[in-house]
Every structure is written in structure tokens, then in C-alpha cells.
């Protein structure tokens, strides 16, 4: 018998279960796009059959890091930029957990950029939601890796000299196997994309445009938005790397010209990291956490490794 009976339990799950019984006072401003991520998750999780006790939400630092304060799951609110390494190890140790990592654009594309590249490269079976508001919110409005060129802030008073980072393209080159962009103002699409991301076997990256009404006042509310799958103007094959790359490039450029393109950009069914590791013999398919609860397990001892030293 498993020591983790919440995992894989089959029962009806109500979306209210994901709302804390006594909700902590939200620290998000009225009109903040972050509420939409929370709502989309609360809708998506029961629809994909996940219960609060089998989900681990791992967040970084910033407004987005508060996600797991308001979403009733197991949570680990880590440090700035480090949600991914914590999350992916938890998934390796207990593959039954539904692991969702989340953070802001500064967290994921700036300070945690290296982890983003490598977690995508390794294709861990998890979902990563980046709250992209093109600004540092909690520290009061500094320029972020996705701020448009020329963006003025207290730390770049004459306007940013840097071109913004291209998050979708970066995810693709790094090796993410599901890549999508959605926006806070598009709740139905957001829910559907998050459901797909959770159900995808591999590293699913969702760049979630979340407007910041406080520190990015001149920023768009990300309306009107275009769903590239719904629109007749955009034809491409999202299983084709080349075509996906071009569509991403166009989408990233268009955002700074006032056109908000969203939708699914890339999907690939390559094996997950755990599958690869099991295939090379680097790990077994028995979850390590279960071993600690197996009373019959014969634990290996260094005593049996001593032949090479005699």
C-alpha cells in the first residue's frame, strides 16, 4: 500500500476544494492579471482529475510567488528564481505528484534563466507557468527581461536600451516539449491551455500574460488578443519545429507592436526525463519516496561494496 494515498485517488473533485477554507488576504492589486492564473488553475485541476493533496505547487519570489498562498495544494514558496530545481527534484523523487511551478518573468527569465533553460532541456514532466507582466511588480516597477525596448523605469530612467527576451523561442531552443502563451483577459483559453499543459507528458511552458495595473500603467491590458488557432490569419503546424519557431518569433515581435497573439505554439511527444533516465539505467521505476515506506525493503549497505577496496 502506498504511503501517499492522495495520489491517483479516483473521486469527484470540486473546484472549491482548491480555495482555502479561510482565504488569506490577497496581496495582489485589484485588476491584477495574477487572479486569472489562480482562477484558471482552480478550474483546470478538478477537470483533469487532480485533488489538492496530490498537487505540489512550487513558486518563486514576487507577486506571482504568492500563488500557492491562495491555491489550496501542497506548496513550496521557494526563493527568487529557484522554483524549477526544487520542483523537478520533487517530481523525480515522487513521480506521482502533479508538479506545477510558477513565477514571474524576472524570476523565470532573469535570475532563474539558467534553470529555465536546463529544466526545459531535460524535459521534466511538469508544468511551468510564467506570470509575464513585463515588469518587476513587487519591488515596485523596475525594468524586467521582457520589458519593451525604451521602457522607462526608476532603474532605467532614460528608457531600456535592451531588446526584450523572447520567452517562447527560448523555451523551444532549450527543449520544452509543450509551449503556449495565454493572457489573463482570455479565461477560457487560459483554462484549456493549463489543462493541456498539466496533461502533457514533458516540460510544458505557459507564458501567461498578466497585466500589472500598478507598475505598468502604460502597458496594455492585452486586449484585443488573437487566438492563433482560432484565427484564419495564422496557419502553421505546431508539431513542426521550424514553423513553430517562426510563429513564435512573429508573436514575440507583434506584442511590442500592439498585437497580442496567444495560443499553442509547439508540442512534441519526446520522452520525458524520467523515461530517458530509466531507459539508460540511470534510475529505476520504483519511486524513491516509496522505498522509505517499504518495510520489506533490503537496504543496500556499503559493506557489500568493499571488494574493490580489499
Amino acid at each position: 500500500m502506498s504511503a501517499f494515498n492522495a495520489i491517483g485517488e479516483s473521486r469527484e473533485i470540486d473546484r472549491d476544494e482548491f480555495t482555502p477554507g479561510l482565504e488569506p488576504q490577497p496581496t495582489w492589486c485589484p485588476g491584477c492579471g495574477d487572479f486569472s492564473v489562480l482562477k484558471a488553475l482552480k478550474q483546470a485541476l478538478p477537470e483533469v482529475g487532480k485533488s489538492p493533496d496530490e498537487v505540489l505547487t512550487v513558486t518563486g519570489i514576487g507577486c506571482s510567488g504568492k500563488l500557492n498562498s491562495y491555491l489550496e495544494t501542497y506548496g513550496f514558496h521557494t526563493i527568487h528564481g529557484r522554483s524549477l530545481p526544487v520542483a523537478r527534484a520533487a517530481k523525480l523523487a515522487n513521480p506521482g505528484l502533479e508538479v506545477i511551478a510558477a513565477g514571474g518573468d524576472g524570476d523565470g527569465y532573469g535570475i532563474g534563466g539558467n534553470h529555465f533553460i536546463h529544466t526545459a532541456r531535460e524535459n521534466h514532466d511538469m508544468t511551468y507557468i510564467v506570470f509575464n507582466n513585463e515588469v518587476f511588480g513587487l519591488t515596485k516597477g523596475q525594468t524586467s527581461p521582457t520589458s519593451p525596448k525604451g521602457h522607462k523605469s526608476k532603474t532605467q530612467p532614460t528608457g531600456s536600451a535592451k531588446s526584450p527576451l523572447r520567452p517562447l523561442s527560448l523555451a523551444l531552443t532549450s527543449g520544452a516539449s509543450y509551449i503556449a502563451r495565454t493572457a489573463a483577459v482570455n479565461p477560457n483559453q487560459a483554462k484549456e491551455i493549463i489543462k493541456e499543459a498539466i496533461e502533457h507528458d514533458g516540460f510544458a511552458h505557459v507564458d501567461f500574460l498578466t497585466q500589472c495595473p500598478t507598475w505598468n500603467k502604460d502597458a496594455r491590458q492585452y486586449v484585443p488578443y488573437v487566438d492563433i488557432q482560432e484565427s484564419d490569419d495564422y496557419e502553421f503546424d505546431r508539431t513542426d519545429r521550424q514553423e513553430a519557431a517562426e510563429m513564435m518569433y512573429e508573436t514575440e515581435s507583434a506584442l511590442y507592436e500592439g498585437t497580442v497573439l496567444t495560443g499553442r505554439y509547439y508540442v512534441d511527444d519526446r520522452p520525458t526525463y524520467a523515461e530517458e533516465k530509466i531507459a539508460t539505467g540511470e534510475m529505476t521505476d520504483t519511486p524513491i519516496v516509496e522505498q522509505y515506506f517499504d518495510d520489506d525493503r533490503e537496504w543496500e549497505r556499503s559493506y557489500d561494496l568493499l571488494d574493490r577496496h580489499k
Binding site: A6, I7, D53, Y74, G75
Partner: peptide, 11 residues
Amino acid sequence: LPGQKGGRFLA
């Protein structure tokens, strides 16, 4: 531990 029933907490 995450995955246990009734043990949810935030670290």
C-alpha cells in the same frame, strides 16, 4: 509529505 492525505501545508 506531499501526496499524503490531509497533510497540506505551505513551505
